[in-house]
Design a protein around this nucleic acid. Structure first.
Lengths: 169, 169
DNA sequence: TGCCAACCGGGGCGTGCGTTCCGTATCGTC
DNA sequence: GACGATACGGAACGCACGCCCCGGTTGGCA
């Protein structure tokens, strides 16, 4: 790869990181190109499609989150709640995480699998109500993350959801 | 108004009711016109803008909901929960209610005012946690209603949110 | 029945977006 | 320093959508 090509690729990635975080997947690709100081054509030389660029940007961050979820814990309920809390914290600041669950990529499935596994363990330990499925929880979290981007108080919303998830006894 | 004009207006309203309920505000206006068996121009003869048509469709339903919220109750907590439950029930079947909170119309403000008043009463009675604002609650409900349209179990999601709203003692 | 106003349909305009194309500039090698 | 491959930029394309316009049609009153 030529030196200028590598330079431009890095500039595009950085601009995309910033703008996807600020505005989510909806941000026009031309805007990313402008911020990177290149033309739209250059973006497409490095990434075949807008989704591929989005995936390249969110990949490592989401992969890191999933990795932490894989470690076994002696308190499965706390592990799930910590994971959801981490998701919420990220979503409160960056708009791209909630899209990462929806936009069809490889990561989306891994993310869903990770949440499903954490949920199953927490339910087996009796820490979370048994009548909720992974699909329900993911939908709930997506809604929660969208709510956070509308001027609501993220911490309170997270507390409400976590409290509601606890198994009622 | 001429007879055929009234007939077409009614056909447009019915098509809009169906399609807004199925697909939300995002549905293309041309699709509504097609379902109604008229041209797009005819829609605009009766409604100056797409939002006006949306408002005409959702107006009475939302107004009815707001009316029930206005009645004073001896159990403010139950009143709020019943109202939120009614919202959730509607949203579980029709996609337009969650948009009605967001699309800028007259109703949106009334809706927000009604929720705010119900919430204040419920908080004064100690039934709902004091650290949540009307903005938070509306954002939460919007996220909840969006979650319901993704294959999740509406009843469980509502239970979780309502439980989380209760004041922890 | 005849006439005019009201109304209709659908083609068309402007806009915004993802994506592609191609003439030009730049890099790295001989 | 020159040359070929590589990469660049931005104009242009295709599409979808909200909205408008106009030639033709239809309804209802005299």
């Amino acid at each position: 790869m030529r030196a200028d090509a590598a330079r431009n690729r890095a500039k595009v990635l950085e601009a995309a990181r910033e703008l996807f975080a600020e505005q989510g997947f909806e941000v026009p690709l031309d805007e990313i190109a402008t911020r990177a100081g290149v033309g739209p054509g250059t973006v497409y030389r490095h990434f075949p499609t807008k989704q591929a660029l989005f995936q390249a940007v969110t990949e490592e961050r989401v992969a890191a989150m999933i990795a932490t979820a894989g470690e076994p814990s002696d308190d499965p309920g706390a592990a799930l709640f910590a994971f959801l809390g981490r998701m919420a914290d990220e979503a409160a600041v960056k708009r791209d995480l909630s899209d990462a669950i929806t936009v069809p990529t490889e990561l989306r499935k891994s993310m869903q699998a990770a949440i499903g596994s954490l949920l199953a363990d927490a339910q087996a330990a009796g820490a979370v109500r048994a009548d909720i499925t992974a699909v329900d929880l993911i939908a709930l979290m997506k809604g929660l993350m969208q709510s956070m981007q509308e001027g609501a108080n993220p911490a309170v919303l997270l507390e409400i959801v976590l409290k509601g998830l606890q198994s009622s006894r």
